[in-house]
Amino acid sequence: MVLGVFWVFAGVAIVSAFLCITRRSPVASALWLILTLFSLAGIFVLLDAQFIAALQVLVYAGAIMVLFLFVIMLLNLGRQGPSDLRGWPGRLVAAALGLLLAAELWAVRTWAPEEHLRLPEGAIARMSEAEGPVHVISDALFREYLIPFELTSVLLLAAIVGAVVLAKRRL
């Protein structure tokens, strides 16, 4: 049952990712990417990461992709222009390298963490059932990773300032 649902999401994600990179229109690409991100959010739920799945939808599929679409619209690239896909030599190179990479990554797909490092089956699921899915991540985030978390705020601030500086016509 779970595996079936997983493969449905996985299939949607892969197909829409493929469409994302092959559609001529940037807007279409962006929309297919959003679908991929939604599917990934579904897979995240299946992998007991409900909170991250929610963030995926809110932050990625929502905020970031809206930003992308916004810029595409702003630059007026939505209209059907000349294709930005490369010619046949470029396509062949892209396909070849992509397949090669997939093959190499496929080879390591079956690697699993060593037995003694592994949590018991369903441990994360039980934990989120008992304490709530947010608690699972927040516990680690605000204890072990407190300083990186705070630094993230600085990073975001810097990004905001940087974006303003870059995008503004005249300071």
Binding site: F6, A10, A13, I14, C20, L47, R86, L97, L99, T110
Partner: peptide, 20 residues
């Protein structure tokens, strides 16, 4: 399966960078 899907998606991303 998750790692397999991850590999495929990543390769698609790379191919996309090369393609566009």
């Amino acid at each position: 399966p998750s790692l397999a899907v991850s590999a495929i998606l990543f390769s698609l991303g790379v191919a996309g960078v090369l393609l566009r």
